[in-house]
């Protein structure tokens, strides 16, 4: 660290450059949304965010996000338990498949669901007979949201459980504790912060997913439009105040998520120590 003192100029130059870059690239777009949303005053803003279509899109986004978080939490807990506590054949394959949605472009994620449930799929006649519509309907949006956020929670838990090892659980099991008791009393305290952290990341992505949802939504106003899709619709209709007003809700959510994230990361690090 002595070296740093010798070159204060380089240090402050690098800090200044980083700060300017982050301010222009990351903060300016955030602030710009808020300013543009209120540019025409409070009244148009309130009108835009309380528009029935806007409220409907908020509701759909909330629904999809909650379902995705619940499904991925259940999956994340079981998958990380399965992967970190046991040795079995095919474990590598399962880990690879879990991470796969991260490498797939959102558009391709949407495409594979269209191919699975769309008109050319062998499932289509059955779905039609049962009167279930998945693509261009709410279930498709929910599925796409689950897909793009699928690994988010298990990815946070698995490293923590791998580091914790399985001795404690084995001891508890040998002393006669049941699975649920072991999980609740032994495992859960280890993964608490990682789980919350994963849920926060999952919420952020689920709320904002655009590409995959866009492929699977029929873009029906008031029916299959999530907030990002509704924003697109308003923006393309040159209703900039409306688009930025609805965006501002997502910006506020993003700021809350960032604050939660850094609090959780701090608590998680403290917990490890």
């Amino acid at each position: 660290m002595k070296q740093n003192e010798q070159s204060g100029a380089v240090k402050w130059l690098l800090i200044a450059f980083s700060a300017i870059f982050l301010a222009v690239m990351l903060i300016l777009p955030l602030i710009y949304v808020l300013i543009t949303a209120f540019r025409e005053g409070v009244q148009p803003y309130l009108e835009a965010v309380t528009d029935p279509y806007a409220l409907k899109s908020i509701q759909l986004t909330l629904e999809a996000t909650v379902i995705a978080v619940v499904v991925n939490t259940i999956f994340g807990l079981f998958a990380s338990w399965c992967i970190t506590k046991f040795q079995f054949r095919g474990k590598k394959v399962i880990s690879t498949l879990i991470d796969l949605p991260l490498t797939v472009s959102p558009i391709i994620a949407g495409l594979i669901y269209v191919l699975t449930f769309g008109r050319q799929s062998f499932l289509y006649p059955y779905l039609k007979a049962a009167n279930i519509s998945i693509i261009y309907a709410v279930p498709g949006i929910v599925l796409a949201t689950i897909f793009v956020t699928f690994p988010f929670i298990s990815r946070e838990i698995i490293p923590v459980l791998t580091a914790a090892g399985k001795d404690e659980e084995e001891a508890a099991a040998l002393m006669g504790a049941g699975g649920w008791t072991i999980f609740r009393r032994v495992t859960f305290p280890h993964i608490k912060w990682a789980l919350l952290y994963g849920i926060v990341l999952c919420t952020a992505r689920a709320m904002g997913e655009f590409g995959a949802v866009s492929v699977l939504s029929g873009h029906l106003r008031g029916k299959t439009n999530t907030m990002p899709l509704y924003i697109e619709l308003l923006y393309q209709g040159y209703d900039f105040t409306g688009a930025f007003a609805v965006s501002s809700i997502l910006v506020v959510m993003a700021i809350i998520i960032l604050v939660l994230r850094s609090v959780l990361e701090y608590r998680g690090k403290k917990n490890e120590e």
Partner: peptide, 10 residues
């Protein structure tokens, strides 16, 4: 944290 569509329009 910021939805890509919001970043896009901004």
């Amino acid at each position: 944290a910021l939805p890509t569509a919001v970043a896009g329009i901004s």
